[in-house]
Simulated scan of single mutants.
Amino acid sequence: MHKRDIANILFITCVLALPAGPATAETTEPPLNPADAPSECRKDSDVIDINLLRKRLMETPRQINTWIDNTYGFRFVYPSHLKPSRQFEPGYLENGSWSWFSEKDKGFPLVSLALPGTPQKTTVAEIRIGVSEDPVTVRQCRNLPPNATPDSLKTFRHKDNIYTFFSGSDAAMNKSISVQAYRTVHRDRCYSIELMVYGTNPDAVDPPDYAAMKPDEAMTRLTSLWRQMDFQWLPDMPVRKEK
């Protein structure tokens, strides 16, 4: 049997082994986007390490957790192998602000969720949710910021909330950053949900970090994760009447 035939058989095995179905808080098998499949399952190589393939399939997330913020009234689900953080780590092209598109002192971080990366952190990909209660920021929440790409603005409605989408990027000194933002006003607050990929040229790392995700691949995986998170606003709590 030729190596290519073996590779095709193993690829089919990989596809059948991946979980499927909608992601909800009750499921134990969250769906995986094809872009998230282990690289050993892809057709771009005839060489497959069976032991590595078995290890990667065993490590495929089988459970999801639910993040609930009762103070700001939202929830989402996420693969249990990811660890949410309440801090936004600053980098060379961003200062850890509540929103990459806004001033740091006008809001504050709520939660971030990062994809696994190499120890050198050559590519960092994370979803950040921040909020601002500043009146001016709330009024301008859905406007296109000066540092966003001019033709990236889109507007859509989802479950009675109007969202705007825009993107932006920057690069300097062997580093780059790309950000996609979803903005909305909810209960008189401006929320910014941002998909951020921060990358360093692998050749600029000592030793060169060629195992790191490429920025485009990282954004694809981040988009897949965001679509699975099932972000929802919590229902308004009824006001108690004094007797």
Results as ranks from 00 to 15, higher is better:
residue 203 D to K: 05
residue 13 T to H: 10
residue 102 S to F: 00
residue 198 Y to P: 03
residue 97 S to Q: 10
residue 196 M to H: 12
residue 230 D to A: 06
residue 28 T to I: 07
residue 16 L to P: 07
residue 217 E to F: 03
residue 62 R to C: 01
residue 152 S to M: 05
residue 207 P to E: 06
residue 220 T to G: 05
residue 136 V to S: 10
residue 60 T to L: 14
residue 147 N to R: 08
residue 107 G to I: 00
residue 114 A to P: 02
residue 81 H to Y: 14
residue 4 R to K: 08
residue 110 L to W: 04
residue 8 N to R: 15
residue 173 M to I: 05
residue 24 T to M: 01
residue 2 H to V: 01
residue 56 R to M: 13
residue 10 L to H: 04
residue 170 D to C: 08
residue 28 T to V: 05
residue 202 P to L: 12
residue 1 M to W: 03
residue 177 I to Q: 05
residue 10 L to T: 10
residue 140 Q to M: 00
residue 227 R to P: 01
residue 203 D to E: 09
residue 170 D to Y: 06
residue 140 Q to Y: 00
residue 63 Q to N: 13
residue 175 K to T: 11
residue 34 P to G: 06
residue 189 R to Q: 07
residue 66 T to C: 05
residue 218 A to I: 09
residue 123 T to M: 03
residue 236 D to R: 09
residue 48 I to P: 03
residue 14 C to R: 05
residue 95 N to F: 02
residue 171 A to Q: 09
residue 103 E to Y: 05
residue 84 P to N: 05
residue 6 I to M: 08
residue 81 H to C: 02
residue 163 Y to G: 05
residue 100 W to A: 09
residue 199 G to D: 14
residue 51 N to A: 09
residue 242 E to L: 15
residue 75 R to T: 15
residue 43 K to H: 07
residue 200 T to N: 09
residue 46 D to S: 07
residue 206 D to I: 04
residue 165 F to N: 00
residue 242 E to W: 11
residue 86 R to G: 14
residue 46 D to L: 04
residue 26 E to D: 12
residue 59 E to K: 06
residue 43 K to N: 07
residue 12 I to P: 00
residue 32 L to N: 12
residue 69 D to G: 07
residue 238 P to Q: 04
residue 175 K to P: 02
residue 125 A to W: 02
residue 101 F to T: 00
residue 237 M to W: 03
residue 130 G to A: 11
residue 210 Y to N: 04
residue 152 S to R: 00
residue 218 A to E: 04
residue 189 R to P: 14
residue 92 Y to F: 15
